[in-house]
């Protein structure tokens, strides 16, 4: 028991509290991005204001993180996978309802899309969304009910069919065919990647483009290959200031500067390095992004609210796939 007898108090483990702290509550895949971006912003803020700022990170599934903020997690800024989750926080009164208009480009400093990750050499010859529904293929995707990324996967496939004028029936058939091929539904994007890369399950993984780029660089990535479908969805992970928190803590100025710095040349270039599609053409030169014809969620589904009600709510089209 001696080992447990005298742990030093928790407070002693952290240095004296710095004058300013920000808490950025984010979704799973952005850990590496914000690690680097935070360091850049801390330097920038020190240089321009002479003030020290410390930035704390919290990561998890997008929906879970939004719920934590609603339940009292003291986030200064939220950077989540989908607007639907920030809308949920806004409807609880913590964020102004018109948050999307507060920052440029609909409060989305960078975008991404959904691509395919396949085994080296693409042995199954997977090129487009229709190929995923081929009988006998094994497709790995997380569960759209619990993973923000998986909702983009689902909507990308659905939208692809609509773009080809197959109508709702055709879209439903395609998505049903794809999910019939899914042997494992992990609860989050990272779990799905592990299933595909490390456990060797499946022929193809549906993933965020930035996740696919990261997986190619991680152990086992040399046996994989990225395939960009001809058409995919423009995934827009938005950011917002949590008004209630920053007003209470008096951190609005630095929180706003933090989010705005995402749009700066340095912020954009860091985002591009981590595989997110930047908004500025200069930063886009950092990495060659695959030419994919991108459609926005609004152009096909109207709004997140409608997309959620039609596809992911209880008893909606995703549930019906499994209840036949």
């Amino acid at each position: 028991m001696a080992a447990f007898a005298a742990p030093p108090p928790v407070s002693a483990s952290a240095p004296a509290p710095p004058p300013l702290t920000l808490l950025n509550v984010s979704y799973d895949p952005t850990r590496e991005l914000y690690q680097e971006f935070n360091a850049a912003f801390i330097r920038h803020w020190k240089k321009t204001t002479g003030q020290d700022v410390a930035i704390k990170q919290s990561h998890g599934g997008s929906g879970k993180q939004a719920r934590s903020v609603i339940d009292g997690l003291g986030a200064d800024v939220v950077t989540l996978a989908l607007a639907h989750d920030i809308d949920a926080i806004a409807s609880s009164g913590l964020i102004a309802k018109d948050w999307r208009g507060k920052l440029p480009q609909g409060s989305t400093p960078f975008t991404s899309t959904i691509v395919f990750l396949v085994r080296k050499g693409n042995p199954k010859g997977i090129r487009d969304w229709e190929a995923l529904a081929r009988p006998g293929l094994s497709v790995i995707t997380p569960n759209p009910k619990t993973s923000g990324g998986a909702r983009w996967n689902y909507l990308a496939a659905w939208g692809d069919a609509l773009k080809k004028n197959k109508g709702d029936a055709g879209a439903r058939a395609l998505v049903e065919g794809i999910f019939k091929n899914v042997p494992v539904l992990d609860s989050g994007a990272r779990g799905a990647t592990t299933t595909f890369v490390q456990r060797g399950m499946g022929d193809v993984l549906l993933a965020w483009e930035n996740e696919a780029i990261l997986a190619l660089k991680s152990p086992g990535g040399d046996r994989l290959e990225m395939v960009a479908p001809p058409v995919s969805i423009l995934a827009e992970p938005p950011v917002a200031i949590v008004d209630r928190t920053v007003d209470k803590k008096g951190t609005r100025a630095v929180a706003e500067a933090y989010l705005r710095y995402l749009y700066s040349p340095e912020g954009q270039s860091i985002a591009a390095q981590h595989g997110y599609r930047p908004r500025t053409p200069e930063a886009a030169k950092v990495r060659a992004f695959a030419p994919v014809k991108l459609f926005t969620l609004e152009s096909v589904f109207g709004s997140w609210e409608k997309a959620h009600a039609a596809h992911f709510a209880d008893g909606a089209s995703f549930d019906r796939i499994y209840q036949k």
Binding site: G61, G63, K64, R67, I70, A88, N143, K145, T146, S187, F312, A313, D314
Partner: peptide, 8 residues
């Protein structure tokens, strides 16, 4: 967990 993710 799934229900919680959906704010239910």
């Amino acid at each position: 967990m799934t229900k919680l993710e959906q704010y239910d």
